[in-house]
Write a protein that binds this DNA or RNA. Structure first.
Lengths: 241, 241
DNA sequence: TCAAAAGTGTTTGGGCTACACCCATGG
DNA sequence: CCATGGGTGTAGCCCAAACACTTTTGA
């Protein structure tokens, strides 16, 4: 089995797809991009966007292509795309053997998706209302949320939910929305600013956020990718043991 | 593209394989299980063990099956198996399109592997000497090491390198070997014992570890899977930025 | 009696939490 | 001049790094 050759009976062909858990923040709530299936199986049910790999593209390229098709944007700025894991259980798809490489995608400031070319409707859905999805997409979506929440602690991933220029208040809202906890503003800004390369000040810029109040300084995402020390969720509030 | 049907031209068939980065600790050094390829491509080169998915098994099941075949153990106790990511770039395999689901596997106290059935030799190789592997296996192996090193910080993964019963000194050696740093023994044991469910004392048991010295108390892995607070590498010593 | 390894105690400094407080803007 | 959100300062506590010290074994 180790170094078995490549004769035609040595392997079974599988269909390979990508599935995308596209997450964003709208109106202070986590949303996910869903599409309505137009065909069996699961016709009329909502599902994560995705599709088959083309012969000459990697899974990452397929994911970007599908995402561009779904959102109607050929070049999404500030997109973070990350492999989640691969789902390969037999029976995932009732018709055939499909191995699916799942991705989590994070977007700032999302455009309204236009329904995909093949007649399916596409829409942003609040995370909490995205249940009963087709295939094993409930599980993929839950895995994506768990992963994103965990990565906020020890990576700079939060900036992927923000536009190119953002305020620290907006960055804090990302954490508070995804984690579902309130954070202390002074301590949050100190932690963020104390991490080299997490954010970079945009000189001279300031923006009013809520219509009222002092204009907030504007920052850009910095070059750092990991957070040391991590920005931990406080153990007392709703953490899984 | 969204909800494209299942007609035969809608997708290309791919071969799907699993590749295993099987890591263990021998004589205080990180080792990886390699096999020598007997056929083209890369005949005579060393590679990670792996093989094709069978029609009715998941990637996880295929990984366990391949691992059992390689190590000669049908039931490896204390095995930790974890999906790394999926490698799907066209051209990974010079002959055909192969999508490979890579796993990291951690073993305590490894048996000598017997060469795989198809004439390949198999052997434990020090991590630092495992270079020039077939396909993109150098990269997969490096990704596995990075992932394992990172997960030691915030999960209880280290116990997967230890036998069922172990001493705190042995557990500390896992961290020191994988991270390549020395840790302070008193502080290490306090951190470990302060984390509920990380380890459980085996009452009355004690073991001599180095032939000399005070016998060490014996522990088992506890039910916890994540570490709060994490056991961080000190930033000053050799961390990737 | 010495070396080696396990285990305990203690000091001390840094960091983090939890606040109080000031600043700038719109209404 | 008040409400709202941005930003700064600080007291106190907790924790963890560093290191001295004790204990138990084999030689």
């Amino acid at each position: 089995m180790l170094v078995r050759g490549y004769d035609k009976r040595a392997f079974e062909p599988f269909a390979v797809t990508v599935d995308l858990a596209v997450l964003t923040l709208r109106a202070g709530a986590l949303h996910v991009l869903l599409v309505e299936r137009g065909q069996e199986p699961y016709a009329g049910r909502w599902a994560l966007p995705g599709g088959f790999l083309l012969p000459e593209e990697s899974a990452e390229e397929a994911a970007r292509r599908e995402l561009a098709e779904e959102t109607g944007l050929a070049d999404v700025t500030g997109l973070h795309l990350e492999q989640l894991r691969t789902y390969s259980e037999p029976g995932r798809d009732p018709r055939m053997r499909v191995v699916s490489v799942a991705f989590a995608a994070l977007l700032p400031d999302p455009p309204e998706p236009h329904g995909g070319g093949d007649a399916a409707e596409a829409r942003w859905t609040p995370y909490d209302e995205a249940r009963g999805l087709a295939f094993d997409h409930d599980r993929i979506l839950a895995d994506a949320r768990t992963r994103v929440g965990a990565k906020l602690e020890y990576t700079c991933l939060a900036t992927a939910f923000c536009p190119a220029e953002f305020t620290l208040g907006e960055l804090q809202q990302v954490y508070e929305t995804v984690w579902g906890t309130a954070l202390d503003r002074p301590n949050f800004r100190r932690k963020v600013l104390a991490t080299p390369g997490f954010v970079e000040a945009v000189p001279g810029a300031a923006r009013l956020t809520g219509g009222r109040g002092k204009p907030a300084a504007v920052y850009r995402a910095g070059p750092a990718t990991t957070l040391h020390p991590p920005l931990l969720r406080t153990p007392r509030e709703g953490r899984p043991a």
